[in-house]
Amino acid sequence: MHFVDEATIRVIAGNGGNGCVSFRREKFIPFGGPDGGDGGGGGSVYLVADEGLNTLVDFRHERTHRAQRGENGMSRQMNGKAGADNVIRVPVGTVIYNVATDEQIGDLTRHGERLLVARGGTGGIGNVHFKSSVNRAPRRATSGSEGEDRELRLELKVLADVGLLGFPNAGKSTFIRAVSAATPRVADYPFTTLQPHLGVVRIDTDQSFVIADIPGLIEGAAEGAGLGVQFLKHVARTRLLLHLVDIAPLDGITDPVDQFRTIEQELAQFDPELLQRPRWLVLNKADLLPEEERAKTAKAIVRRLKWKQPWFVASAIGRDGTWPICLEIQRFFDEQRRDALDAAG
């Protein structure tokens, strides 16, 4: 399944039912007064976040979503039934924009969170409301108002604590398989990952965090090259970035430092604030080097990068060095949580 993280849909709320013009007609009461009821309100359209969904692919096939119209009012002062709402499920992390104004109207970040996106029309009123001392037989009622009709753009941003960065085939999918129960596709060619995968890393019974395998980036991604901006936006919500670099590219020509700096440039071009986010370096695929060369090669890369943040050497395919990274991540989050509690008093 190809990943779809953006969709445009049309939402149409129900119109309100019309008010009724009617007069009481019973035996021995030939000139009864007005008894027209009110129209029912139109149904509204809501979006609700559902953690069981992780893609917007369904909206490629069903683009128009309507709520039910309210029923018309009836005689004997019977009001019309209100139209049923249309509740549309979307993944947690969906951001909603009004296409006409490009205004963000909502951001659904919690399971069950609900957003009204098209309000139903109000029902018209029946002629019983127009009765007065000077007009005992009003033949007037009002029509229901129209429901809102909007075109929306939905964007899905992955919600995760940790985001994996790196060139295609840097070993990100292998890493997430090694540390969680997630099973993204792994193969020896670029762009194996076509959609972000979320994995829960469980340290113990009450400590865990969510890690996202984000598709690989290439030079020009901020302008849409490769898989482009549609995936860069997924790092925007993560608390920590793990930047995976192939420590020993098989072609013998590719420079790991050049690849690292290329990704940095794409992050800076997309959103300079991302470079200020905590970012740790993981030199992956160490198993491809002789054991006696691993530390020397890793230190040389770190020295050339002038890297000051935490860094690790790992071999995700053999799960060598991956668990210590997870433990450090959990300690980092625990410290963040303690600092936040201290700051709150």
Rank of each mutant, 00 (worst) to 15 (best):
M1H: 05
F3S: 08
T8S: 14
T8V: 15
R10I: 14
R10N: 14
I12G: 04
I12D: 08
N15C: 04
G16T: 03
G17L: 02
G17R: 00
N18P: 00
S22A: 15
F23T: 02
R25S: 10
R25E: 14
K27E: 13
G37C: 00
G39C: 03
G42E: 08
L53I: 10
L56R: 02
L56D: 11
V57L: 00
F59Q: 11
H61Y: 06
E62C: 08
R66E: 14
G73D: 00
S75K: 01
Q77D: 10
M78W: 04
K81V: 15
I88M: 09
V92K: 03
G93C: 02
G112V: 02
L116D: 14
A118I: 13
G120W: 02
G120Q: 07
I125Y: 02
N127H: 08
S132D: 12
S133N: 01
N135W: 12
E146H: 00
E148V: 05
E148Q: 15
L156T: 06
V158M: 09
L159D: 08
A160Q: 03
L164N: 12
G171N: 04
A182K: 00
R185G: 00
V186E: 10
V186N: 02
Y189L: 04
F191V: 06
T193A: 04
P196S: 10
H197P: 00
V200K: 03
I211P: 00
I211T: 09
G224D: 06
G224P: 00
A225K: 01
L232W: 11
H234N: 13
V235G: 05
R237P: 02
L240I: 14
H243E: 13
G252L: 12
T254W: 09
D255N: 15
P256H: 12
P256D: 13
D258A: 15
F260D: 05
F260Y: 15
L267F: 15
L274D: 11
R277W: 12
R279Q: 15
R279A: 09
L281M: 13
D287A: 08
E293Y: 07
V302C: 00
L305Y: 07
Q309H: 14
Q309E: 15
I317F: 07
G318R: 06
D320Y: 12
C326P: 02
E328H: 10
Q330A: 10
R331T: 13
Q336D: 08
G345Y: 13
